[in-house]
Write a protein that binds this DNA or RNA. Structure first.
Lengths: 127, 127
DNA sequence: CTAACCCCTGACCCGCGGGTCAGGGTCAAG
DNA sequence: CTTGACCCTGACCCGCGGGTCAGGGGTTAG
């Protein structure tokens, strides 16, 4: 499977796959003798996981530092929960997920304050 | 008043004042014979208004297209309400404020969905 | 007069997740 | 063999509100 097909199968672009590889999220795939990247179904599943986590607001750097654990999340049945307390799979993602949730709470509160202040100015019922 | 003092009085930096001037938010001030910018109290008040509106999420472009109306907002008593319906002062800001509020609502909803999805994954009570 | 600070313009830098081009090589079908 | 679609790398571009640097000149207290 060449990069364009793999990208389409994962719902993204070839550029994104090269970018993830360059940033260390995606392991360098095998190459044909002429240098073209070759992907398999597992790679496509991995890319889907990466995009899902990015869409949830984790950063490239968050994923890069835990790139070795990403394939575990890509398996159809998530691995059985270990003794880890708050992780989604006993993996190392709990800290970054917790930080992201905290950042989201802060951001939501900030935007809510902005919204209220703007609404107050737009209709000065008591102001 | 030179730029550094005006910036400090408005709670920002000299760089920001030059930037606002370059983008057309702030009228070009008088200059000394040697080219240094000279500001007055009205300019400082205007800069305060600009920063307030930027902090509420309006863009440089939003303010640029209405730069002529900004000084009205800088006056201590806001001008009496005209016949304009939903404006904060019968000015032309209502449209951009409404758009910004809508954008905020959308963004808040998006972040809230992200937060819920992350929380769901972090503690899979019913995954 | 000199030191220390201020100001001038113009240009590049930040984060962040890629998009888009430029200039070339490769693959599959006709 | 040619054509068209695809792939390669490297480099610059986006938004956005400025920060920071570079190289030069102004200003003011001692």
């Amino acid at each position: 499977m060449r990069i364009g097909d793999a990208a389409a199968a994962a719902g993204t672009t070839a550029r994104a796959l090269r970018f993830y590889e360059q940033r260390g999220l995606l392991p360098p795939p095998a190459r044909t003798p002429t240098g073209q990247r070759q992907y398999g179904a597992a790679d496509v599943a991995l890319v889907r996981v990466i995009r899902e986590l990015l869409a949830l607001g984790l950063t490239i750097e968050d994923l890069r530092t835990r790139a070795d654990r990403l394939p575990l999340l890509a398996q159809d049945p998530p691995p059985p929960c270990g003794s880890g307390g708050s992780g989604s799979s006993g993996d190392g993602f709990a800290p970054v997920v917790d930080r992201r949730i905290a950042a989201l709470d802060e951001e939501i509160a900030r935007l809510t304050r902005q919204r209220e202040e703007l609404a107050r100015r737009a209709s000065p019922v008591a102001g």
